[in-house]
Structures are given as structure tokens and as C-alpha cells.
Design a binder for these strands. Structure first.
Lengths: 142, 142
DNA sequence: TTGATTGCAAATGCTTTGCAGCCGC
DNA sequence: GCGGCTGCAAAGCATTTGCAATCAA
């Protein structure tokens, strides 16, 4: 699996004139393998667990780069003050944050697209990004 | 105007067993008078402009209190890392952030309610808060 | 070789906290 | 007067930055 993931990253980096380095591969692998959203600290931890060691500053720099490349996406979820990162999925989705168990679910649907269409069509606002976060209690905690 | 605004705050504070102090009134007045969203630093500045002087820490504490009372609302808008505060309007709205001029518009509509209904009805998720932020370019900047 | 990239450490900026003194009740 | 609140200063975190050393190309 890593090979495919790696191929994507490598190709994109080269294409844009960036170098393919170990920190960059490590961050990307940690992020791709993650089920949930990761803080920078968690990304570092997973890289360490995988036997590598990458400086926190480099992780920040790499995540910013991945975002610029369209491969990663950051959001501020819940009440924590640390940004959380995930792989940028092509489909638009939003987040359901449970205030009780802390779980973050993805919810894929037409809602985000509806917002986009609504604004594009009638309000002269050129939508770039739609960020929708819903907090509450999930089905298991309610 | 201030008198009405003040009356609301005073009554609510007393009711909940909190004291009515000058910093609390000053923060509330600054926030109520503001058209747009204010950072903590901006709240301090406006209070100073009004001839008072309040410590930043107290402003933070007061804003947290106002949020708990349901009078104020905070959000992280755009790319800035400082929270921005506004009076908690009873109607649900979302924010349109222009990445070019930085302006933040309120947009009132049924969209937020739609999201809420959608989730409440079919997904077993007890919605507490819906936060919707749209970034892009406003009609004047596009 | 060459310059982009990293690691390290220091700096920055927002926010929180401990505590002594003050002031609303 | 009592105890909640404030102001002050220091601490806490997440994030950024300067710079010399490193390493991909």
C-alpha cells in the first residue's frame, strides 16, 4: 500500500519541482495510514513509532506543503486549539464532533455542495472553501 | 442604547449569581456596539478608546463568561489564529470570509437549519452547534 | 557541486493561570 | 467583612523562523 501512496507523492513533488525527502515521505505515510484526524504532535509520534525521527518544525512545514499540493487538509475541530490534519479526500464532506466521546466522524452528502451552489448562483460570492463542523452528541453518547 | 444593553447583562449576571463589574460592562458594551467580529485585542482597544482600561486577561475571562451565558459567540475565521467574537444573535447564520479584502459577512438563511434537521432526523446525532464558514471572494473582490 | 531542506533552538503570538489586593454585595 | 474579580506578571502551548549543516538531484 505504501508503494502506491508513495508513488503519488513522489510524482507530485517532482512535478512541482520539490525534492523527495525522508521527512516528507514519513509525514505522508503517517497521514495516509491514519483513520482519524491527527494533530502535529500525533503525526510526530506515529513517525517515531515507525522507527524514524522527524523534527516538529519539519512536520509543520511538510503539512503546509501537502496542503498546498492539495494532498492534505487541516481543520480546527472541537475546542482544542491544535489544528488537526487529514488526507484531502476528493469528495466534499463535513465533520461531526461528539462533545462527549470526542469522536470525529466524516459525513458525506450533498449539503456542502448545496451551500456552494446556493452562494455561487445567487450571491456573487466566489466560493473557495466550505467548512462545516457540527458539534453535539453521537448516537452512542446521546 | 447602552442602558437597554446594560439592563440585559446586569439582570442575567445577577440571576446566575455573578457580580456586575466594570470590566464586564465594558466588554459587553464594546461587543454590542461592534458591527463586525472583534479579536480580544480589538475589544481591549475599544474599551480603551471609551476611556476605560481593562486588562487583557480579564477580557478573556469575561468573554468566556459571556459565551457561557449565551450572550457571545466565538469563532476562528479565515487564516488568523486569534479567535473573533460577536454578540450571539438568536437567528442561525454563517460566515462568508473574503480572502481578498478580509471582510466577514453574515449570511442568514435556512441552510444551517437544514443541516440541523437533516442530522436530527436521520442520523441519531444530537446537534448542539452548527458552524459553517465559507471562504472565497466577495462580490466586490472577485 | 549546489541549493533546497532539515534539525535545532530561539522567538512569537494567543491564551491561561497563580496570586495578592480590590470591590461588589 | 467576605469572597468573587481584577490586574499583573509569568507560564503554557501551538506554531514560526533564522541559520548552519545536510542531502537530494
Amino acid at each position: 500500500m505504501d508503494s502506491l501512496v508513495d508513488a503519488d507523492l513522489t510524482a507530485l513533488l517532482r512535478e512541482r519541482g520539490y525534492r523527495v525527502t525522508r521527512p516528507r515521505r514519513a509525514v505522508w505515510e503517517a497521514l495516509s495510514a491514519a483513520e482519524d484526524h491527527l494533530t502535529v504532535e500525533q503525526v510526530c509520534a506515529r513517525i517515531r513509532d515507525a522507527g524514524h525521527d522527524v523534527d516538529t518544525a519539519s512536520v509543520y512545514r511538510t503539512l503546509d506543503l501537502l496542503e498546498e499540493l492539495g494532498l492534505a487538509r487541516s481543520s480546527r475541530l472541537g475546542d482544542s486549539d491544535a489544528s488537526r490534519w487529514e488526507v484531502a479526500h476528493p469528495d466534499e464532506h463535513f465533520h461531526l464532533v461528539c462533545t462527549s466521546c470526542g469522536r470525529v466522524d466524516h459525513h458525506i452528502g450533498s449539503l456542502v455542495a448545496q451551500v456552494r451552489d446556493h452562494l455561487d448562483a445567487g450571491h456573487g460570492f466566489a466560493v473557495d472553501e466550505v467548512e462545516l463542523t457540527v458539534t453535539g452528541r453521537c448516537s452512542e453518547c446521546r
